[in-house]
């Protein structure tokens, strides 16, 4: 119960941050990505604010032996830079620039009823399912 409430609260808080910061407005996002146009640097401040808080909090939280509702922390351990990482990130950036949505703001705006975001989330879901099917079909060489 507390576990699920905490996850729900974290999601809700995350959405407040996205809305307040302007990430749920594709025009704002594309204004940031448009270096050659009327550049709007605001979103750089979103990143700064988020990292400033999480950089410190991450270190404080990890002093604990375990999180509150689990027996251990589940953090990524991979260190290798592979083609999947670079190609995946490159594609993500292209889609982000085309639509003005990344996954979090897309989901929040779709729930808020924005038509563009609903269409985006349909594509997002299909794209994820396609990648997962391809990954199953092609055994990884790792």
């Amino acid at each position: 119960m507390k576990r699920n409430a905490a996850a729900f609260g974290a999601g809700a808080l995350f959405a407040v941050g996205l809305a307040l910061s302007g990430m749920t407005r594709p025009a704002k996002v594309v204004g940031f990505l448009d270096l050659a146009g009327d550049w709007d640097a605001s979103l750089a401040f979103v990143m700064m604010g988020a990292i400033a808080v999480h950089f410190v909090a991450y270190r404080v939280v990890l002093r604990r032996p375990a999180p509150l509702f689990d027996v251990r922390f589940h953090l990524p351990t991979r260190k290798d830079i592979d083609l999947r990482l670079v190609l995946g990130a490159a594609l993500f950036g292209v889609g982000w620039g085309l639509g003005g949505y990344c996954p979090g703001p897309g989901l929040v705006s779709a729930a808020a009823g924005s038509l563009g975001a609903i269409v985006f989330v349909v594509g997002l879901t299909a794209g994820m399912l396609i990648e997962q099917a391809v990954a199953r079909a092609l055994p990884r060489r790792e």
Partner: peptide, 18 residues
């Protein structure tokens, strides 16, 4: 401020669920 709240939300998920 919005960014700081996003950072806080991420920290909450780390603290509660790791």
């Amino acid at each position: 401020i919005g960014g700081a709240i996003i950072g806080l939300a991420a920290s909450l998920l780390l603290l509660t669920h790791g």
